[in-house]
Design a binder for these strands. Structure first.
Lengths: 218, 218
DNA sequence: CGAAAATCTTGACACCTGCCCAGGAAAATC
DNA sequence: GATTTTCCTGGGCAGGTGTCAAGATTTTCG
């Protein structure tokens, strides 16, 4: 039986280690996660980290990169399956809520790391890259909504990302603080209210924004 | 000569200590700031902290609360002095840029602390309180813009805060990462574009949003 | 099988952390 | 000036940190 390429095996091990680390990091945050604690919540010993990674930081960045790489594709499905602007907006809002419920620890870790990057220069490059892929992700959603609504997006992708990231972060903060219901309900209605605002006054029919909003809140 | 009330003196000392601590915290972040490092960048010794504060956390929270308390009044002047909707929007945008330039370390510390609050329960109450005062602050600005434009705000204060906090944070991230010009320019135009979007279709004249936007971008 | 290479464990290292406290300086009070 | 109270210092403690290296263990392969 064919064995795996040793390089693949090495990479697979890195992935597994980083994956284990993410669980602990999501629970304790960047600052409180020691390598020993990370190793305890995993099938590895604390020393093995330096066999696969040169650094604690490299391990963490590797893990978060890995996580966000799949995270970023989460909305491709809803974009592909959408048939109406309002439907896509609702689906987008629902997915955002879903990911808060399912992966709150990972999201708070991301915001933790992003904040750390303002102090730790060595984190900046990775954070900026990830932030950019996230920006692209919401841009794909919003431009598709515009397309379905027969209009275009009236704001830059950076602006759109900033505002949605902001309301998402607020929802996460509330959710983690125990106000789960409120956080999710508000996030849903906020997204449905905000997406139409990003659209220009469209070509066909009435004002694109208003038209989408009606369907979204229906 | 009259001496100060001993309680006032005690409080004054606390304030001074917390103030010194903020400088270090803004430079190193929450995780890297040790009490010894904080004391080194101050006229105090590391032991005195436990004379005025029970805890490292209490010191930090006290300091950030103190800072944000004055921070929150920074826009009252521009609100009071505004005579037109567009003028207020521009002044608001300018002030936001100004505070990034002048106090980037404090802002990144705030975001750091807010992220930490998602892991550290004992931070949550203070963070939520501060976040609420910030929300009120931008709400005062936006409602005044609406008033001047003869319309009202079409979103909740929580939503409005979320979106502006988001674009502000993005600007801060870029600014700290060295893209100062780009960050400030984008933030200014983003704020001028977004504020009108928060307004309802006003009573007098044309659509309130459009009317404000014209003056803002003039 | 046996040697060589890889993977992993364990324990140690130098250092740093928050916190506490004995003792002394300074100030206030009488 | 003496005494009491307030204020502050600096050292020490117990525990935790990232990193590393030497050895054990496993895997690979001639």
């Amino acid at each position: 039986m064919a064995r795996a390429n040793p390089i693949d095996k090495h990479d697979e091990r890195r992935r597994a280690l980083a994956d284990s680390a993410l669980r602990t990091l999501g629970e304790l945050g960047y600052a409180r996660s020691s390598l020993r604690e990370i190793a305890n919540n995993s099938p590895f010993s604390h020393g093995v980290v330096h066999y696969y990674f040169s650094d604690k930081l490299e391990l963490i960045v590797y893990g978060v990169r890995q996580y966000k790489a799949v995270c970023v594709t989460r909305y491709d499905g809803v974009v592909a399956g959408a048939t109406t602007a309002g439907g896509l907006v609702s689906a987008f809002a629902d997915k955002l809520c879903e990911t808060i419920v399912d992966e709150a620890p990972m999201h708070r870790l991301w915001y933790d790391l992003r904040s750390q990057s303002m102090f730790e220069e060595s984190l900046r490059e990775a954070v900026q890259q990830i932030d950019h892929t996230l920006e692209d992700m919401v841009w794909r959603v919003v431009t598709r909504v515009a397309e379905l609504a027969g209009t275009d997006v009236a704001l830059t992708s950076h602006t759109v990302y900033g505002m949605f990231d902001g309301v998402f972060q607020q929802a996460l903060l509330r959710y983690v603080a125990g106000q789960e219901r409120e956080a999710l309900d508000d996030l849903r209605t906020e997204v449905r209210a905000l997406v139409p605002l990003t659209l220009g006054a469209g070509a066909p029919g009435a004002a694109g924004a208003a038209a989408v909003e009606v369907r979204a809140t229906a």
